[in-house]
Nucleic acid binder design. Structure first.
Length: 941
RNA sequence: GCUCGAGUGGCGGAACUGGUAGACGCGCUGGAUUCAAAAUCCAGUUCCUUUGGAGUGUGGGUUCGAUUCCCACCUCGAGUACCA
């Protein structure tokens, strides 16, 4: 009997689907285990072999847990809203839903061929109305909530309104917009309805506000900070400019501290935690208020600054505002106006990228105004400079040149005095920023104090005079939540008198309307501005034609859509009860499944999805919707699989194409060749290549030994580099089990590693060898013979190692272990069922199709999926002797087999009497003999 | 610049809490089988000046003993970028 992987794999894939083998039940006496993959965006290009790496790892784990008796939830779905389908729609007019459907179908086929144990009954698609209904509902709940800092949690907006009615907003300790005006209870009660709504927007967890956003003209939309890489859009690499727009934002900053603290509770990779920690960017310091003096007169304006070094306040010799700072126009003197205006205009013109690239050039302008030092009462000049960022802190700094290198450089450049307030420190060359060695001097009441004590004291003094307090600042900004795009979740929002109103939960989903074209309107409104049926009728509670918008009963709906991360921020919870029409998930479902036990996905989502989803989870926790405020106990980032590109070499002068070995000193241009035209020995199929690239039809290919050998190089796997290998072609040629084993065998899960198709013959022939343990030409080989001691030792050694490996997510080493096991059992000519049956279970998580076939050939009628994992028994591994390595000065020279029960003295005697020892020592007397029983002998001297 | 991560044969990689470096696989070499090829099987494969010796990026240290621990440096990769 031959190993016919095609037949076997098709058979079992059908069986699993027909029997819903991997269906997870929400009620079970078994312990639950939730294994989650980051669901993919279904792109038109399909999957390449790098994509399923994490899915294979999680599938092995899920299958293993089933063998260990767990009720496993292992779902899959699609993050199906997104830009590429929309760009395609703009180009071709094809509705993104159609493109998406086609791509999902392709993905599904590819995934099915690899034999994953997903419970497809639970599939979710973020672009389906029955799914995004719940995305909309979370949005509404965020809108109806505020963050109470006293309770340190989100609360219903009604509790805030009650406080406003009772005592205004002065006693409210909320996370809200900056510069909220104070009002009393009588003020509040006297406000018009619209004024009340405006005030409340400043507190809601999702709010509409005019914000400075990253506008990408080429994509026609705003982007979040994490969607911008090196000053250009992550997708497409288009320029990004700053622009003021009215946008929905998420008050994620309310959760900054909890997002930071939560990292201690979860088992996520340290680099990923570091990334989130840096992104949140907590720093401790003080806020200090400076009074402003213009032309010798005190102004009503004040400048608030945030500083991490309040201890250096007596070293402040100037102030610097960001050019965008709102006070700039208000305080600039007449004589400085021209210079300041010119500078502000110049910086506004520079793109974000320019500003980032050019950090060396020092520039700025003097406003003519002064700030009053809170303690010395001396006037200090107020400058503007683009090294101060509008988006961080208050957009203003107290410049202390002696203690900060940027301030120092700025002061030197503009000849501003540099005061030295550090005892025994020379600052003639550079600033001194070492907190640990700081002793303050020339600073009145701070003289002689070290950093920490000085900070405490100065904050106390600032509080006494009402000009400052201790403060914690975060780099994290509120997340812009609007996109000027078509293919995203519509907001469940309509506008009355310019104020946003939420549509009641019972009327959701608000479905995406049809539009003629997917581009912005001529008046510059988002694509939904093209919709003709996009008004909200409050009487009928339904979407109606725009023609009936009368601002009495029918109102315009929101034209923006939600960003890509909206749909992925709670999908892991929805999987628990995905077909529930009445609730996002039932209480029973969430109570049973609780949270994700293992989450596998890429680290590129560190500051996007993985931060936003933690935020939503914490919000849902505050609302009592979920029992855990962190949704994933353990997370693993799978490494990237890189491609091995192939090159042909065209000689620059003659145009001849030289085989790799013939290049020599010739000047050649390497040109990518499609890797599918190369065989495992790096030979190019020249005819096929000429067919693929017709411009080489008549080119002369110079061969070596009758073959054209290509050059190879490791690069990112991508279409443009012609190095993409698809899992389908591998499954076709070697089968899914070979692919699964090989992807794991490549190396540690978390490391990035190059793909080389040639190596797959290793795992393929392993499977053939495994098969031959059970079958030969005449049929089955296994029988009821008693296993030998050797057989049992091999089996139990394997059980032990494989369980350890799975526990450590070290899947590459268990593939080696299987190979060793099969090599040994083959050599032992093992045919014993009591060895071969447990072996099939051991292999099953990794190579489920062949395992299932073997299991059934052994006479079992149920699926192998829940067969109990073999129990390890240490007694089979007990040894009576050991090959001791005998080393001299730490270098092993020979080995000696000795009984394990021999004691230290016995070992020493045996070793010293050995002829090779005598030969090594050449008459010398050893200084010392180290004997570690069971391990090693080391002779020194 | 800063923060992480990693440097082991021709290649992917292995080595438990310090204890026989290079498991396993690819590739390569030789052989068997075959008319031939594929497939399969067997043997070999870190390097060198080979009765021996050296060797895990470099230099130093701790230790009887270091790929593993400590210090300094070099190289590569990832992230981040004036964060006050």
């Amino acid at each position: 009997m031959q190993y016919n992987f095609k037949e076997i794999e098709a058979k079992w894939q059908k069986y699993w689907a027909d029997n819903e083998t991997f269906r997870a039940e929400n009620k079970s006496d078994k312990e639950k285990y939730y294994v989650l993959d980051m669901f993919p965006y279904p792109s038109g290009a399909g999957l390449h072999v790098g994509h399923p790496l994490g899915y294979i790892a999680s599938d092995i784990y899920a299958r293993y847990k089933r063998h260990k008796g767990f009720n496993v939830l292992h779902p899959m779905g699609f993050d199906s809203f997104g830009l590429p389908a929309e760009q395609y729609a703009i180009q071709t007019g094809q509705h993104p839903a159609i493109t998406t459907e086609t791509n999902i179908k392709r993905y599904r086929e590819q995934l099915d061929k690899i034999g994953f144990s997903f419970d497809w009954n639970r599939e979710v698609r973020t672009s389906n109305p029955d799914y995004y209904k719940w995305t909309q509902s979370i949005f509404i709940q965020l809108f109806n909530s505020w963050y109470n800092q006293d309770a340190d949690k989100a609360e219903d907006i009604e509790t805030l309104i009650a406080q406003f009615e009772k005592s205004g907003n002065s006693k409210v300790n909320a996370v809200c917009d900056e510069n909220v005006e104070l009002f009393s209870d009588s003020d509040w009660n006297g406000f018009s309805n619209k004024e009340k709504q405006e005030k409340l927007l400043q507190y809601r967890l999702t709010y509409l506000a005019e914000t400075e956003v990253n506008w990408c003209p080429a994509l026609g939309t705003v982007l979040a900070n994490d969607e911008i890489v090196n000053g250009v859009s992550e997708r497409g690499g288009h320029p990004v400019v700053r622009k003021k727009m009215t946008q929905w934002s998420m008050r994620i900053t309310a959760y900054a501290q909890r997002l930071l603290d939560g990292l201690d509770k979860i088992d996520w990779p340290q680099p990923l935690k570091d990334l989130q920690t840096n992104w949140i960017g907590r720093s401790e310091g003080a806020s200090v208020t400076f009074k402003v003096i213009v032309n010798g007169e005190k102004q009503s304006h004040k400048i608030d600054v945030f500083t991490t070094r309040p201890d250096t306040i007596f070293g402040a010799s100037f102030m610097t505002l960001a050019p965008e700072h709102e006070l700039v126009t208000k305080i600039t003197t007449v004589s400085q106006k021209a210079e300041v205006d010119a500078y502000v205009e110049a910086t506004a013109k520079r793109s974000e990228r320019d500003r980032m690239a050019d950090v060396k050039t020092i520039s700025g302008a003097f406003t003519g105004a002064y700030a009053e030092h809170p303690f010395t009462k001396e006037p200090i000049p107020i400058w503007i400079g683009d090294y101060v960022l509008a988006g961080y802190g208050t957009g203003a700094v107290m410049s202390v040149p002696c203690g900060d290198q940027r301030d120092y450089d700025f002061a030197k450049h503009f000849d501003i005095p540099i005061l030295n307030i550090f005892e025994g420190i020379d600052i003639s060359e550079e600033a001194f920023a070492d907190k640990d060695k700081t002793i303050i001097t020339n600073s009145d009441f701070l003289n002689g104090l070290p950093y920490k004590k000085a900070v405490k004291r100065v904050i106390f003094e600032l509080e006494q005079i009402g000009q400052g307090e201790g403060k914690v600042n975060y780099r994290l900004r509120d997340a812009v939540f609007s996109r000027q795009r078509y293919w995203g979740e519509p907001f469940p929002v309509y506008y009355v008198d310019g104020m946003p109103q939420m549509i009641d939960l019972e009327h959701l989903p608000i479905e995406l309307p049809e539009v003629e074209k997917y581009l912005p309107t001529e008046t510059g409104e988002p694509p939904l501005g093209n919709a003709t049926v996009w008004g909200w009728d409050i009487k009928q509670s339904t979407v109606v034609s725009n023609k009936s918008i009368d601002h009495k009963n029918v109102f315009p709906l929101e034209l923006n859509t939600m960003p890509g991360w909206a749909g992925s921020s709670q999908y892991f919870n929805r999987y628990m009860d995905p077909r529930n029409d009445n609730e996002i998930f039932s209480k029973d479902a969430i109570d049973y499944w609780q949270d994700v036990d293992l989450y596998i996905g890429g680290s590129e989502h560190a500051t996007g999805h993985l931060l936003y989803s933690r935020f939503w989870q914490k919000f849902m926790f505050d609302k009592g919707l979920v029992p855990k405020d962190e949704y994933a106990k353990k997370l693993i980032n799978q490494g990237m699989i890189t491609g091995t590109s192939a090159f042909i070499f065209r000689e620059e002068t003659t145009g001849k194409v030289l085989s790799k070995g013939l290049i020599g000193n010739n000047k050649v241009t390497p040109i990518h060749a499609d890797v599918s035209l190369i065989n495992t020995a790096d030979e190019l199929n020249v005819e096929a290549f000429k067919k693929w690239k017709p411009e080489f039809k008549d080119a002369e290919f110079i061969l070596e030994n009758g073959k054209y050998i290509v050059g190879r190089e490791v690069e990112k796997m991508s279409k443009s580099k012609y190095n993409v290998v698809s899992p389908d072609s591998i499954c076709e040629e070697y089968g899914a089990d070979s692919l699964r084993l090989y992807e794991m065998f490549l190396g540690p899960l978390e490391q990035s590693k190059p793909w080389n198709t040639a190596g797959i013959t290793g795992t393929f022939s392993f499977l053939k060898k495994l098969w031959r343990l059970y079958f030969d030409e005449n049929g089955t080989k296994f029988n009821e013979t008693e296993p030998t001691k050797e057989n049992l030792k091999t089996l139990h050694k394997t059980i032990k190692k494989v369980e350890e490996d799975i526990g450590n997510f070290s899947f590459n080493t268990s593939v080696s272990t299987f190979m060793i096991c099969v090599n040994e059992l083959s050599a032992q000519k093992c045919t014993s069922r009591s060895i071969l049956e447990p072996l099939s279970i051991l292999v099953s998580p990794y190579a489920p199709h062949i395992a299932e076939e073997l299991w059934h050939q052994l006479g079992n009628s149920e699926s192998i999926a829940t067969a109990p994992f073999p129990e390890f028994d240490a007694t089979y591994l007990v040894e009576s002797s050991k090959q001791y390595p005998i080393s001299f000065n730490g270098k092993t020279r020979f080995t000696l087999e000795l009984p394990l029960d021999l004691d230290r003295n016995g070992i020493e005697a045996a070793v010293m009497a050995h002829e090779k020892t005598i030969q090594q020592l050449q008459g010398r007397t050893p200084k010392k003999i180290i004997v570690v029983p069971g391990k090693i002998v080391n002779i020194v001297g």
